[in-house]
């Protein structure tokens, strides 16, 4: 597999995720986009690991997977906690961070 292609694909998916994060108001989709960016990074790592014949990249992916899983679990728990209080999930309505 040509490494440039793999990295280019990863870059493309990452950019899509980044755009999605800023575009979507639905917190669930927002999370999906974040995951998408994680996955893009993983793809680049796996590609380079194969390219150089080293296993370190895949080890890193393993660690990233674990972190991503934890992040999703915590994030969704927070979402549900917020929903319990507000009955509303539009992120634009949760604007208590305003200075």
């Amino acid at each position: 597999m040509p490494i440039e292609f793999t990295l280019g694909l990863a870059a493309a998916i990452f950019s899509v995720g980044a755009a999605g994060v800023t575009f979507r108001r639905d917190p669930l989709v927002l999370f999906m986009c974040v995951e998408m960016m994680f996955n893009a990074a993983n793809l680049a790592l796996v590609g380079l690991s194969g390219y150089f014949g080293l296993l370190d990249g895949q080890t890193m992916v393993f660690l990233v997977l674990a972190v991503a899983a934890a992040e999703v679990a915590v994030g969704l728990a927070i979402l549900i906690a917020i929903f319990r209080v507000r009955q509303d999930v539009d992120v634009d309505h949760v604007s208590e961070l305003r200075g």
């Binding site: 980044a18 994060v21 800023t22 575009f23 108001r25 927002l30 992120v91 634009d92 949760v94 604007s95 208590e96 961070l97 305003r98 200075g99």
Partner: peptide, 16 residues
């Protein structure tokens, strides 16, 4: 403080 809109997506956008 004008920059601190409180909108999460605004922060994310700024971050990106």
């Amino acid at each position: 403080t004008l920059l601190q809109t409180g909108y999460v997506r605004f922060y994310l956008g700024a971050f990106v």
